[in-house]
Nucleic acid binder design. Sequence first.
DNA 1: GTTGAAACCGGTTGTCT
DNA 2: AGACAACCGGTTTCAAC
Lengths: 152, 152
Amino acid sequence: MNPDATDRTILRLLQSNSQLTIKEIASRINLSITPVHDRIRKLEREGFIDRYVALLNRRKLGKSLIVFCNVTLDKQRKESFEEFNETVARLPEVLECSVVSGNFDYLLKVVADDVEGYNTFYQQNLSVLKSVLHISSFFVMSEVKSTTELPI
Amino acid sequence: MNPDATDRTILRLLQSNSQLTIKEIASRINLSITPVHDRIRKLEREGFIDRYVALLNRRKLGKSLIVFCNVTLDKQRKESFEEFNETVARLPEVLECSVVSGNFDYLLKVVADDVEGYNTFYQQNLSVLKSVLHISSFFVMSEVKSTTELPI
DNA sequence: GTTGAAACCGGTTGTCT
DNA sequence: AGACAACCGGTTTCAAC
């Protein structure tokens, strides 16, 4: 059930590069192919690995801007949260959306081509929502670090 | 140089599931294996695909808490930014770090086991930095959406 | 957990249209 | 640029230790 040190090493390798062959992993951790193969399948089966994905290059694809925005909902309306969650889940520009503690309700991470593109998205998809009371946008000026690798 | 509609379809498929075989992709877009193979290699070579990774399940690995924190630096010290950037890049608990517009300087996304674990991380790694003037932490209470898939 | 073998399948390459 | 065919290498499953 719980991954041992060997399992965690395998997970660490795979979350850094999922194209490593079983052979390569096996040689790095001084095991033969069979147990490495079985461990990976087990980690997948048990849900330690959610999925395998390709990470694309934002800038190459014209998505040069990231904006974080704080959203406060109109809490008088009890449908607000459900409505907002469903809307946001459908918007492909929203990469992340979290309910957070503190002064506002949501923190969103949005990608856009540029400031103008973000403005269009904002006007057409966020500001029109009845459930939304207030939004503050923070533009990312420099991405110091961005990783999907968990510390394990 | 610029990906056409077919390339973008391939990218869309790969960023959703990088384990799709060339065969499967080919049949979905009504092409034979060869052009799909060549296009993927080209997209990799030209940097549209940054890397292939396994996305692990945070909760399964005991990393149940995500905290966003706003950090304001002591701008009197001109070494502050460099110092902070380098420190943060080395901290595995920090998944993302961005310089943002607005009232504070940085927005960090941090993972921890729990509130206590975050407190330890905070005390030992963030609050001790001379470059840091102020930090506000926002705990994620619910993750509505989290994806690595860009809208393309 | 290791080794070795065998079948299978996808990736890779060359050639042709 | 796409289709077809042949080869190579990794994956998968098995047996035996």
